[in-house]
């Protein structure tokens, strides 16, 4: 994968920013710490030192999750935009994470204890994302228009939130609490011990994505072009839906819904890199996505003394105007 000099420069600058903001995320907070404290907390952890506990138990998982969630959602968005040949597609607008929400809601609110366990929640979230991915894929056959597919996804989202609201009314207090906590969504919900499992799913999804780089490159010319180059279109479609479900389900399971990252960052990547080579694009989406969410998190932490802005609120605040900008550019 050869990169042009301008791409390299862009990646290096973003990488440096990501590093700085991540360190900032580890250092800043109510408990005063320094970079050497972070180093100490990593290599000479002592559970009697409050600073070490804060860094390892609170800040590290939060920053790690910001990186993983931002990267995952952006990569998922890129895959969906290529699959549907639609720059307005994304895991949130097409309702993929509604699928996760629905299944997690059904599971936890059913009162069956398995579904409230960690494995239960992740399993439900991944399965829900996959089912809705397939559902959207099947409907896309009938919804050839780019805007109709988008509206369909948004309607799907509204429909699901209606079901969830009704479920909540009828649910037991105990299970309602579990679900409400989950559905609030934040980067802070994840614990350090959960990070390895999250990383495994994350890495699997990335590796799978890199395996379909070539057919993805051709897919921008349409499914017929993919077939003409000797690839199996059906297999490719399933592969994309599976990977999207892994990325989206993973994030939704641990952070709840995070809007617009998966729509805005893939568009931004294509605009900045001026290419449709998915090897470069995937890398860019992972990097820019991570940077964006870590930056959002840093912004939240900055105001955390006066008010705690939910991550979903902030990404929507930035993402929604950007989507409108793309829409206007497209409709012109």
């Amino acid at each position: 994968m050869k990169m042009s000099a301008s791409h390299k420069t862009l990646f290096v600058i973003s990488g440096v920013f990501l590093l700085i903001l991540s360190c900032l995320g580890l250092v800043r907070g109510e408990v005063q710490t320094s970079l050497s404290d972070v180093q100490e907390a990593f290599f000479h952890y002592s559970d009697s030192d409050l600073r070490h506990i804060v860094i390892q138990e609170f800040r590290l998982p939060r920053v790690a999750m910001a990186i993983i969630a931002g990267a995952s959602l952006s990569a998922a968005g890129m895959l969906m935009q290529t699959l549907f040949q639609n720059p307005l597609a994304g895991p949130y607008v097409l309702g993929i994470n509604s699928g996760s929400s629905l299944l997690v809601a059904l599971g936890t609110l059913s009162g069956i204890s398995f579904f409230s366990t960690e494995v239960g929640v992740i399993g439900s979230a991944l399965l829900g994302a996959f089912i809705f991915g397939v559902f959207i894929l099947l409907s896309s056959v009938y919804l050839r228009n780019q805007i109709s597919l988008l509206l369909f996804g948004i309607m799907l989202g509204s429909f699901v939130s209606a079901i969830i609201t009704i479920l909540q009314v009828t649910a037991h207090a105990q299970s309602l609490k579990a679900f409400t906590l989950w559905s609030m969504g934040s980067l802070q919900a994840v614990e350090l011990r959960q990070i390895p499992l999250i990383l495994v799913v994350f890495v699997i999804a990335i590796v799978l994505s890199f395996l379909i780089i070539k057919p993805l490159n051709i897919l921008v010319l349409g499914e017929e072009a993919v077939k003409l180059m000797g690839y199996r279109v059906k297999r490719l479609r399933w592969m994309i839906v599976l990977i999207t479900a892994l990325f989206t389900g993973l994030v939704t399971a641990y952070c709840g819904p995070i809007a617009f990252v998966g729509l805005a960052i893939p568009n931004l990547s294509r605009i900045l890199l001026k290419t449709q080579r998915h090897g470069v694009l995937l890398f860019a989406n992972l990097l820019f996505g991570a940077l964006f969410l870590v930056a959002c998190d840093a912004l939240i932490q900055l105001f955390s003394n006066s008010m705690l802005i939910p991550i979903n609120g902030l990404t929507s605040l930035i993402g929604a105007p950007f989507v409108i900008f793309i829409l206007i550019k497209k409709l012109k």
Binding site: M1, K214, N217, L221, M229, R277, H278
Partner: peptide, 14 residues
């Protein structure tokens, strides 16, 4: 270069 897809590496490098 997409026409070269059958000759490029698995990442699509030319």
């Amino acid at each position: 270069l997409l026409g070269r897809s059958n000759f490029t590496s698995i990442w699509g490098a030319y």
